[in-house]
Nucleic acid binder design. Structure first.
Lengths: 129, 129
DNA sequence: TCATGTGTACTAGCTTTCTATTACACTATA
DNA sequence: TATAGTGTAATAGAAAGCTAGTACACATGA
């Protein structure tokens, strides 16, 4: 997998896994791939995966069971809170960014609407910078 | 100034200055603060400021004049292109993030609208993570 | 009990980013 | 011409992140 070299890899791994959980690809109680397996599929060192997991465990989203594996928490409330936290975080980020450019609240909606209509559901991945 | 420790400082400085240019606080042709002055006001080393400037100069947004200072380009077209690039970049970022969470195009607009109505034009700066 | 799959810990070395410091080049002006 | 303001370059060291490799702890099942 390709990472943004402006953000620590371990942090991006955390984001990827959280995204999968919220998207429902990883359901509550599901077993995560083994750390060594994750390391291979992400083309990354085991220690880096471990660091991402450490934070997810600390946040209560992932439960670690030595010798058995890592599991998504089976508490739907925790996942729901995570979902809201992420969405708010993303929205705030955009709001602050555009606000700094002196773009008004109404314009923000218009810009986003225009962007969506332009890009539509085409899932492109160009224009990184 | 406080920086996000997940992103290189020189990169955040670039963002801050670009924002000021787009916001109009720094007009085309304006002289930037001296590098040593910027370093002090940003609580950062001169080299770090210099690195940010180097990239802005390479992108043609800032013009450097040895012995005189650094200036915002006087070409409005370059600034307009920068503005569009930044806005698109920010929008794409949000779109991709929410898309990964399986949030539909319509929901995105609704969520942003709700966020704006909630936060309004109150310029808070809490909830960073 | 033993082999295998799994999580965890630790050390050493590399790279990037940032800092501190010193030095030099150019401009403007008193 | 001297001085102050400015940009630029270069070195050395600290800190964070990543990798590679090794080792150990625990669980499961043949």
């Amino acid at each position: 997998m390709e990472f943004d070299d402006k953000v620590p890899i371990y942090y991006q791994i955390k984001t990827v896994i959280y995204d999968r959980i919220i998207a429902g690809e990883l359901a509550p109680g599901d077993k995560l791939p083994a750390v060594r397996q994750l390391a291979v599929s992400l083309t990354v060192n085991v220690n880096t995966v471990q660091r991402a997991l450490r934070e997810m465990i600390a946040e209560g989203v992932v439960i670690s069971q030595r010798g058995r594996g890592n599991f998504v928490t089976d508490d739907p409330q925790i996942i729901e809170r995570l979902r809201e936290r992420l969405i708010t975080q993303y929205l705030k980020q955009l709001y602050d960014q555009l606000h700094r450019l002196r773009i008004s609240d109404e314009q923000m909606i218009d810009e986003l609407t225009a962007y969506i209509e332009g890009q539509g559901d085409s899932n492109d991945n160009n224009a990184k910078n």
